[in-house]
Simulated scan of single mutants.
Amino acid sequence: MISELKKFEFFKCKDLLYEQGQLEAKAVIEGVNPGRVFVDDINHPISGLIWLGNNDGFIFIGDEKNEGFNNELNNFIDNIIIPEAIKVGLTWFEGIGNHRKWNTTIEEVLKSRKLGSWNQRVYTLQKDDYKCNSELAIDQGYKVVKICETLFENNDFSIKNIEFLHSQILEFWSSFETFFCVGIGYCMIYKDEIVSICFSGFVVGNIHAVSIETIEGHRGKKLAQKIAKSFVTDCLNNNIVPYWDCMESNKPSIAVAENIGFKNVFNYIGYDFSF
């Protein structure tokens, strides 16, 4: 039977994580970022499923050949996951394996569900690779500002769309306080509005996953690259390793990462099906 662990029990899954796997899985299990964890045995888990707190998918962890867990998965997805996912507005199941061996299992177990797939690329940036010399010119009127509590609270109402910043942070973090304790971020402001944001989405130790978003209407102006450089400079000055995870088909995102100096460290496959 697949059961849900309470947050204080997540530590039981530490040994199930693949060392070279996704940062997001480690961040949830370590209790840094929000998420839910479902396992085959609440006392001695062998296999599990992590539901990321930002609703950005599910990560299969542990033993991919665990027949007891695998045989229950479809029933569990239909009766527990899908009804709860629909409540929060999801229309797709997106799942990935914490290591490559899960790919065959996912394809076999979910083969009756019109399964689609995509490729994902993971990059990291080391100090020696950072291309920091070239100053990037952007249109007049845009300015980069570090995200601080004063900006966040917006007591003087100087930012017209402060809810954009709030919603982005709370998508990844359980509270603003938690973000400010462990994360960093920058935003691009234009005419009293935040039009682009780059911040720590997931954090494990000194590794910070980059989350970046630019409002439609301001894309294609190299704002993402400009703001990412501010974020990266801050990271490297504080011995933080920036971590960039994006779809292989997202050419603009890959271009931003590679133009700054990020190096591709591993790739993985994602799977999805519609509810």
Rank of each mutant, 00 (worst) to 15 (best):
I2S: 08
I2R: 10
I2Y: 09
S3E: 14
S3D: 09
E4H: 05
K7M: 02
K7S: 13
K7R: 14
K12V: 00
D15Q: 10
D15R: 15
L16A: 08
Y18D: 11
G21P: 11
L23G: 10
K26Q: 14
V28Q: 00
I29V: 15
G35W: 00
V37Q: 12
F38R: 14
V39C: 12
S47I: 04
W51N: 01
G53R: 00
N54W: 00
D56F: 04
I59Y: 08
I61D: 07
D63T: 07
D63R: 11
K65D: 03
G68K: 13
N70L: 13
I77C: 03
D78K: 15
D78W: 11
I80Y: 12
P83M: 09
P83K: 11
L90R: 07
T91A: 08
N98S: 13
N98W: 06
K101I: 04
N103R: 13
N103M: 02
T104Y: 14
E108L: 12
V109Y: 06
S112E: 04
G116Q: 02
S117I: 01
R121L: 03
V122Q: 08
K131N: 13
N133I: 04
E135P: 13
L136S: 14
I138M: 12
I138G: 15
D139I: 13
Q140V: 02
Q140T: 10
Q140Y: 13
G141M: 04
G141I: 03
Y142I: 03
K143Y: 15
E153S: 15
N155G: 15
F157Y: 13
S158Q: 15
S167C: 08
Q168N: 14
F176E: 12
E177P: 03
C181W: 04
V182M: 07
V182T: 08
V182K: 12
I194L: 02
I197W: 05
C198W: 05
F199G: 11
G201N: 06
G201C: 08
V204Q: 09
V204S: 07
G205E: 06
A209M: 14
S211I: 01
S211Q: 10
I212P: 07
T214Q: 10
G217P: 14
H218M: 01
A224I: 03
Q225F: 01
Q225D: 10
A228W: 00
A228D: 08
K229E: 00
S230N: 12
S230H: 09
F231Q: 03
D234S: 12
N237L: 06
N238I: 00
N239W: 01
I240T: 09
Y243V: 05
W244F: 08
D245N: 14
C246D: 11
K251E: 05
P252S: 01
E258D: 05
N259R: 06
G261Q: 03
N264S: 10
N264F: 04
N264L: 13
V265Y: 11
I269D: 07
I269M: 10
S274R: 13
S274L: 07
